[in-house]
Design a binder for these strands. Structure first.
Lengths: 205, 205
DNA sequence: ATTTGTGAACAGTTTCACAGCG
DNA sequence: CGCTGTGAAACTGTTCACAAAT
């Protein structure tokens, strides 16, 4: 039985939420208070994982968490990512500690301005975008973090898709056109604000 | 008749997409190719706006776009925002041009480290977080961009909610607890990557 | 001929309510 | 007795298919 999209989005956040409760138990009621999803939704979501780890005294967080990590693919370590575009946003990610202790690992950066790739320093190598395909295929990079200018966004996206990238975290304002096998997650500040403003927030991501 | 959440999220992106087609017409088929939503979904979404602006020769982009802006609340200019947390992420937004020509306007920044609020320069004033409530209420700020450390995230969120903020763009990894009248949009890199990895992307935001 | 707009069928998701377990 | 796990009902969202419009 496959897990619905909505459920998956909540489970990603549930997994995060549970970090604070390791070794303990937690009830669906408590999760409702913390995350805002109804207790009924929480119970249904968890039941879709196909395990029984609650049974009348709240869920055992450790069991739940390890099942979540497997189901959500987060158990696989060292999933490779790259940054495409080393302007202000891209640079702020260069020495970010955000992905420490996560399954994700940034292993390359790219910019079409060779100056930047030569001057900037980081723990992973920086390349000109002409090498995009080569490096991605060689390193088997799965995810791209797109932080380029508007005018380069779609053409670089095309290249990324051609070299087999699985997903793109899109920090640009462009609505990217991608083949169906590539997933895009739009996270630009403008999109986020517009989404809030339009009252269009899914109760999750 | 109220517009469903899913539709709203797509309409936000549709509005963006249409910028490239001002003065022209566009068919639901073309939108399907560009954005990836089925033409049937596109037509249904647009019909929910309650206007007829297509009639057999594709949609008139200008008419469609102005209706979209009204429906999505994006017509109201100068909706005030603030940045909470002036670490690396917050700083990268200080002189960002991303919100230029948008209805949103950053009018204040906050950090609990007074050093930062005194040393950093920006076009809008920077305050210590002790002034959070005062400034937000005085300036009638609607949206907060949360870029603080993990350990401050929930307590500052509580304060933000108390002073009447409408929505929070959450760059932290925390799952924030908020009252039902406050909306959160999670945009941390880690959450974005986990969502992609779990295959949990709504066909929109 | 092409493309919208929409009823009607279908699919997916949430809520309700309660039996059963600890 | 409180809490999960889950059928069944209710609701929301999507797809189909075609009449109407130009």
């Amino acid at each position: 039985m496959s897990i619905p999209e909505n459920t998956k989005r909540r489970l990603v956040l549930l997994n995060r939420l549970l970090s604070t409760f390791e070794g303990k138990t937690i009830t669906s009621q408590k999760i409702e208070e913390l995350a805002g999803w109804s207790a009924a939704v929480v119970r249904r979501d968890i039941s879709l994982l196909g395990i029984i780890c609650g049974a009348s005294n709240g869920y055992k967080v450790d069991e739940l968490k390890s099942k979540l990590e497997i189901t959500l693919n987060l158990a696989a370590k060292n999933q490779k990512c790259c940054i495409v575009g080393l302007g202000k946003t891209g640079q702020s990610l260069l020495d970010s500690t955000e992905l420490e202790d996560s399954p994700f690992n940034i292993v390359a950066g790219f910019d079409s301005n060779v100056n930047r790739t030569e001057v900037l320093r980081s723990v992973f190598p920086l390349h000109p975008t002409t090498k995009l395909c080569e490096v991605i295929m060689e390193e088997k990079i799965r995810y791209a973090i797109l932080t380029v200018n508007h005018d380069e966004a779609q053409s670089l996206t095309n290249t990324l898709c051609e070299c087999g990238i699985k997903g793109i975290v899109n920090y640009t304002q462009c609505v990217l056109t991608v083949p169906r096998n590539v997933k895009v997650k739009n996270v630009s500040l403008l999109t986020a604000l517009e989404t809030l403003c339009a009252g269009a927030i899914a109760d999750d991501c």
